[in-house]
Design a protein around this nucleic acid. Structure first.
Length: 140
DNA sequence: GCCAACGTTGGC
DNA sequence: GCCAACGTTGGC
């Protein structure tokens, strides 16, 4: 049974630390280690079944895949102070073609994306029309 | 490796 | 509660 996603997100990871292929290998993953209040706020708003782009920062610098929120937020076990949260994710599929930051910046429809306005934010919301535009660019 | 952007910390 | 100093992120 497929649930319709209510919200769309984007999460960044450095692929030499944790890549989409690592997530596929494991089957599912815990998204932990976020130490930024704005990012944590977004994670708290995530609902099971929401879809999320997997973005590779530093190496590649592109959106490579789609994943799904498999479990809503819970206290991040790696945060001793108990302030931050983690969510569980599972892979959905790789994009047919990765969407580079360059092509996002070049697209006027994507100029207002949160990830461009706040480039250092590791977890960002995506509007539905932005989501669809990125899928279109990726050749889906 | 550099540097801009920006979040966090700590003194007052 | 302000703000300067500092640390971190992430693109290039």
């Amino acid at each position: 049974m497929t649930q319709k996603a209510k919200n769309y997100w984007l999460m960044k990871s450095e692929p030499d630390v944790y890549s989409y292929d690592d997530l596929v290998k494991k089957g599912s993953g815990m998204w932990d280690g976020v130490r930024n209040y704005a990012a944590a706020k977004h994670m708290r708003a995530m609902e099971k079944g929401d879809l999320c782009f997997f973005y590779h920062s530093n190496i590649g610098v592109e959106i490579v895949a789609i994943m799904e929120i498999a479990r809503e937020y819970y206290p991040d076990p790696t945060d001793e102070k108990g302030k931050f949260v983690a969510v569980d994710v599972k892979p959905v599929r790789k994009l047919k073609n990765s969407v580079s930051l360059k092509s996002i910046k070049a697209n006027p429809k994507l100029a207002d994306m949160v990830m461009l306005r706040q480039s250092r934010l590791s977890v960002a919301p995506i509007a539905q029309d932005e989501w669809e535009e990125i899928l279109r660019i990726s050749g889906e």
